[in-house]
C-alpha cells in the first residue's frame, strides 16, 4: 500500500517536472520569437536594473518597448538582417 502511494507520488512528481519543462519550453519559445524581432526579455531587464542599478529609474514596459524598437530600426547603420 505504502509502496503504491510512493509510486503515485513519483508519478505526480514526474508529471510536475514534465509540466514545468513544457512551461519553460514555451516560455523560451516566446522569448525566442520576440528576440527574433529584436525585443529582449523585459523581466530580465527589470531584474538587472534592480540588481545592478537600484538607484536608477526603471523604464516601464511601454518605454522599454519603444526604446528597443528605436534601437533596432532607428538606424546608426546597423544591419539587422541579411540578403
Amino acid at each position: 500500500m505504502i509502496e503504491r502511494e510512493g509510486d503515485f507520488g513519483k508519478i505526480i512528481e514526474e508529471e510536475r517536472t514534465m509540466l514545468t519543462r513544457i512551461v519553460s519550453g514555451l516560455r523560451y519559445l516566446g522569448q525566442g520569437m520576440r528576440l527574433m524581432v529584436g525585443m529582449p526579455e523585459y523581466s530580465t531587464y527589470v531584474a538587472h536594473m534592480h540588481h545592478a542599478h537600484p538607484d536608477r529609474p526603471v523604464m516601464s514596459y511601454e518605454e522599454f518597448f519603444r526604446e528597443r524598437q528605436e534601437a533596432r530600426y532607428g538606424g546608426n547603420g546597423k544591419v539587422t538582417r541579411c540578403c
Binding site: 522569448q31 530580465t44 531584474a47 528597443r68
Partner: peptide, 8 residues
Amino acid sequence: GLDYVPTN
C-alpha cells in the same frame, strides 16, 4: 538588459 543580455 537591453543590447547586452546573457541569453539562452
